[in-house]
Protein backbone atom coordinates (compact mmCIF):
# COMPACT_ATOMS: atom_id res chain seq x y z
CA UNK A 1 0.00 0.00 0.00
CA UNK A 2 2.74 2.42 1.03
CA UNK A 3 4.86 1.30 -1.93
CA UNK A 4 2.09 2.26 -4.38
CA UNK A 5 1.73 5.64 -2.71
CA UNK A 6 5.47 6.28 -3.03
CA UNK A 7 5.42 5.28 -6.69
CA UNK A 8 2.77 7.95 -7.39
CA UNK A 9 4.63 10.56 -5.37
CA UNK A 10 7.88 9.70 -7.21
CA UNK A 11 6.10 10.09 -10.57
CA UNK A 12 4.83 13.49 -9.41
CA UNK A 13 8.30 14.63 -8.30
CA UNK A 14 9.95 13.40 -11.53
CA UNK A 15 7.29 15.27 -13.52
CA UNK A 16 7.89 18.49 -11.60
CA UNK A 17 11.71 18.16 -11.91
CA UNK A 18 11.34 17.54 -15.65
CA UNK A 19 9.11 20.59 -16.06
CA UNK A 20 11.35 22.89 -14.02
CA UNK A 21 14.53 21.75 -15.82
CA UNK A 22 12.82 22.25 -19.20
CA UNK A 23 11.77 25.78 -18.24
CA UNK A 24 15.07 26.76 -16.59
CA UNK A 25 17.63 25.11 -18.84
CA UNK A 26 16.40 23.12 -21.86
CA UNK A 27 14.06 25.67 -23.47
CA UNK A 28 16.40 28.68 -22.99
CA UNK A 29 19.22 26.54 -24.46
CA UNK A 30 16.96 25.56 -27.36
CA UNK A 31 16.15 29.24 -27.97
CA UNK A 32 19.87 30.00 -28.31
CA UNK A 33 20.67 26.91 -30.38
CA UNK A 34 21.52 27.61 -33.99
CA UNK A 35 20.19 24.20 -35.05
CA UNK A 36 16.52 25.10 -34.85
CA UNK A 37 16.90 28.69 -36.08
CA UNK A 38 16.60 29.59 -39.75
CA UNK A 39 19.47 31.51 -41.36
CA UNK A 40 18.90 35.24 -41.15
CA UNK A 41 19.28 36.03 -44.83
CA UNK A 42 17.62 39.15 -46.12
CA UNK A 43 16.41 39.48 -49.68
CA UNK A 44 19.37 41.49 -50.99
CA UNK A 45 22.25 39.76 -49.30
CA UNK A 46 23.17 37.18 -51.88
CA UNK A 47 22.97 39.44 -54.87
CA UNK A 48 26.72 39.98 -55.09
CA UNK A 49 26.14 42.72 -57.65
CA UNK A 50 28.19 45.29 -55.86
CA UNK A 51 30.27 46.10 -58.87
CA UNK A 52 31.05 49.68 -57.91
CA UNK A 53 32.85 48.69 -54.69
CA UNK A 54 36.15 46.93 -55.21
CA UNK A 55 38.43 45.45 -52.58
CA UNK A 56 41.07 48.10 -53.28
CA UNK A 57 38.70 51.05 -52.94
CA UNK A 58 37.32 49.63 -49.70
CA UNK A 59 40.81 49.19 -48.26
CA UNK A 60 41.69 52.73 -49.29
CA UNK A 61 38.55 54.11 -47.61
CA UNK A 62 39.27 52.17 -44.41
CA UNK A 63 42.83 53.49 -44.40
CA UNK A 64 41.57 57.08 -44.69
CA UNK A 65 39.00 56.60 -41.94
CA UNK A 66 41.55 54.95 -39.64
CA UNK A 67 43.99 57.83 -40.20
CA UNK A 68 41.21 60.28 -39.33
CA UNK A 69 40.52 58.33 -36.14
CA UNK A 70 44.22 58.12 -35.21
CA UNK A 71 44.57 61.89 -35.60
CA UNK A 72 42.13 62.36 -32.71
CA UNK A 73 44.74 61.03 -30.27
CA UNK A 74 46.98 63.97 -29.27
CA UNK A 75 50.53 63.70 -30.55
CA UNK A 76 51.84 65.69 -27.56
CA UNK A 77 51.48 64.92 -23.86
CA UNK A 78 48.12 64.16 -22.24
CA UNK A 79 46.87 62.43 -19.11
CA UNK A 80 44.09 59.92 -18.47
CA UNK A 81 42.57 59.71 -15.00
CA UNK A 82 40.52 56.74 -13.81
CA UNK A 83 38.26 57.94 -10.98
CA UNK A 84 37.05 54.45 -10.04
CA UNK A 85 40.49 52.91 -9.48
CA UNK A 86 42.15 56.27 -8.69
CA UNK A 87 44.90 55.71 -11.21
CA UNK A 88 46.52 58.05 -13.72
CA UNK A 89 48.22 57.32 -17.03
CA UNK A 90 50.54 59.94 -18.53
CA UNK A 91 51.03 59.64 -22.29
CA UNK A 92 53.15 61.28 -24.95
CA UNK A 93 51.39 60.40 -28.20
CA UNK A 94 50.74 56.66 -28.02
CA UNK A 95 53.54 56.05 -25.53
CA UNK A 96 52.71 55.56 -21.85
CA UNK A 97 55.43 57.39 -19.94
CA UNK A 98 54.19 57.16 -16.36
CA UNK A 99 51.34 55.68 -14.38
CA UNK A 100 50.48 55.65 -10.74
CA UNK A 101 48.01 56.19 -7.95
CA UNK A 102 46.07 59.38 -7.39
CA UNK A 103 43.04 60.43 -5.35
CA UNK A 104 39.84 61.74 -6.88
CA UNK A 105 36.41 63.01 -5.83
CA UNK A 106 34.59 61.40 -2.94
CA UNK A 107 31.12 61.55 -4.54
CA UNK A 108 29.50 63.31 -1.66
CA UNK A 109 26.81 65.95 -1.25
CA UNK A 110 27.35 68.28 1.69
CA UNK A 111 24.08 69.75 2.91
CA UNK A 112 24.04 72.85 5.10
CA UNK A 113 21.71 75.76 5.78
CA UNK A 114 23.74 77.70 3.21
CA UNK A 115 22.89 75.24 0.47
CA UNK A 116 24.46 72.18 -1.09
CA UNK A 117 28.00 71.44 -2.26
CA UNK A 118 28.72 68.44 -4.44
CA UNK A 119 32.16 66.85 -4.36
CA UNK A 120 33.00 64.72 -7.38
CA UNK A 121 35.56 64.68 -10.19
CA UNK A 122 33.73 65.50 -13.41
CA UNK A 123 34.03 62.94 -16.20
CA UNK A 124 35.01 64.19 -19.66
CA UNK A 125 37.81 66.07 -21.41
CA UNK A 126 39.43 69.15 -19.93
CA UNK A 127 42.56 71.13 -20.70
CA UNK A 128 45.35 72.41 -18.48
CA UNK A 129 44.50 76.12 -18.23
CA UNK A 130 47.30 77.28 -15.95
CA UNK A 131 50.36 75.82 -14.21
CA UNK A 132 51.84 77.12 -10.99
CA UNK A 133 54.63 76.02 -8.65
CA UNK A 134 54.35 76.48 -4.85
CA UNK A 135 50.63 77.15 -4.97
CA UNK A 136 48.70 78.75 -2.15
CA UNK A 137 45.24 77.32 -1.55
CA UNK A 138 42.50 79.94 -1.49
CA UNK A 139 39.95 78.07 0.59
CA UNK A 140 36.44 78.21 -0.84
CA UNK A 141 33.32 78.55 1.36
CA UNK A 142 32.67 74.80 1.52
CA UNK A 143 36.01 74.24 3.31
CA UNK A 144 34.66 76.31 6.24
CA UNK A 145 31.14 74.85 6.07
CA UNK A 146 32.58 71.32 6.22
CA UNK A 147 34.55 72.19 9.37
CA UNK A 148 31.63 73.98 10.99
CA UNK A 149 33.55 77.27 10.91
CA UNK A 150 32.11 80.71 10.18
CA UNK A 151 32.73 81.77 6.56
CA UNK A 152 35.25 84.65 6.44
CA UNK A 153 34.88 87.47 3.92
CA UNK A 154 36.63 87.09 0.54
CA UNK A 155 40.36 87.90 0.73
CA UNK A 156 40.52 87.25 4.50
CA UNK A 157 43.88 85.83 5.64
CA UNK A 158 42.24 82.66 7.06
CA UNK A 159 41.30 81.68 3.50
CA UNK A 160 44.89 81.19 2.36
CA UNK A 161 46.93 78.10 3.13
CA UNK A 162 50.45 77.29 1.91
CA UNK A 163 51.71 73.74 1.42
CA UNK A 164 48.28 72.05 1.34
CA UNK A 165 48.36 71.70 -2.47
CA UNK A 166 51.92 70.37 -2.59
CA UNK A 167 54.67 71.69 -4.84
CA UNK A 168 52.63 72.30 -8.00
CA UNK A 169 49.14 72.82 -9.29
CA UNK A 170 47.66 72.48 -12.76
CA UNK A 171 44.30 74.24 -13.10
CA UNK A 172 41.60 72.50 -15.12
CA UNK A 173 38.82 75.11 -14.82
CA UNK A 174 35.76 75.50 -12.58
CA UNK A 175 37.97 75.21 -9.50
CA UNK A 176 39.21 71.71 -10.39
CA UNK A 177 42.98 71.10 -10.22
CA UNK A 178 45.68 68.49 -10.29
CA UNK A 179 47.85 69.11 -7.24
CA UNK A 180 49.89 67.51 -4.47
CA UNK A 181 48.79 66.67 -0.97
CA UNK A 182 49.84 66.41 2.63
CA UNK A 183 47.41 63.48 3.08
CA UNK A 184 49.57 60.87 1.33
CA UNK A 185 48.01 57.97 3.19
CA UNK A 186 44.76 58.50 1.28
CA UNK A 187 46.42 57.99 -2.10
CA UNK A 188 44.38 55.58 -4.25
CA UNK A 189 41.10 56.44 -2.53
CA UNK A 190 38.11 58.60 -3.41
CA UNK A 191 38.60 61.31 -0.81
CA UNK A 192 38.93 64.68 -2.54
CA UNK A 193 36.45 67.47 -3.12
CA UNK A 194 36.81 66.99 -6.88
CA UNK A 195 40.47 67.78 -7.52
CA UNK A 196 43.02 65.15 -8.49
CA UNK A 197 45.70 64.66 -5.85
CA UNK A 198 49.05 63.06 -6.67
CA UNK A 199 52.16 61.97 -4.83
CA UNK A 200 55.18 64.33 -4.97
CA UNK A 201 57.24 62.51 -7.62
CA UNK A 202 54.28 61.76 -9.88
CA UNK A 203 53.11 65.36 -9.62
CA UNK A 204 56.52 66.68 -10.58
CA UNK A 205 56.66 64.48 -13.69
CA UNK A 206 53.08 65.40 -14.64
CA UNK A 207 53.82 69.10 -14.08
CA UNK A 208 56.94 68.98 -16.25
CA UNK A 209 55.35 66.89 -19.02
CA UNK A 210 51.94 68.55 -19.42
CA UNK A 211 51.84 72.00 -20.96
CA UNK A 212 49.15 74.67 -20.82
CA UNK A 213 46.57 73.38 -23.32
CA UNK A 214 47.37 69.69 -22.75
CA UNK A 215 44.32 67.47 -22.61
CA UNK A 216 43.12 65.76 -19.45
CA UNK A 217 40.78 62.80 -20.04
CA UNK A 218 38.80 61.86 -16.95
CA UNK A 219 36.60 58.72 -16.69
Amino acid sequence: MIRTFFIYVTILIVGIVFFVSMILFAIPALQESTVILPKLTSSQSSSGDNGDVSKESLEKEIGKLQAKLDKLTPSDAYIIINTTDNHFYLYKGKELIREGLCSTGKNERLVSEKGENTFYTPIGVRRVLRKQPNPVWAKPDWAFIEEGLPIPPPGHSSRFESGTLGAYKLELGNGYMIHGTIYKRFMGLNVTHGCVRMGDEDLEEVYKTLQVGSKVYIY
Binding site: N107, R109, S112
Partner: peptide
Amino acid sequence: KNPFKVIQAPKTK
Protein backbone atom coordinates in the same frame (compact mmCIF):
# COMPACT_ATOMS: atom_id res chain seq x y z
CA LYS B 1 25.99 53.06 -10.90
CA ASN B 2 26.67 56.45 -9.33
CA PRO B 3 26.93 56.10 -5.56
CA PHE B 4 26.55 59.45 -3.83
CA LYS B 5 26.61 59.98 -0.07
CA VAL B 6 24.64 62.82 1.46
CA ILE B 7 26.40 64.42 4.44
CA GLN B 8 24.89 66.94 6.80
CA ALA B 9 27.32 69.79 7.51
CA PRO B 10 28.11 70.37 11.20
CA LYS B 11 26.53 73.32 12.96
CA THR B 12 28.64 76.49 12.67
CA LYS B 13 30.79 76.82 15.80
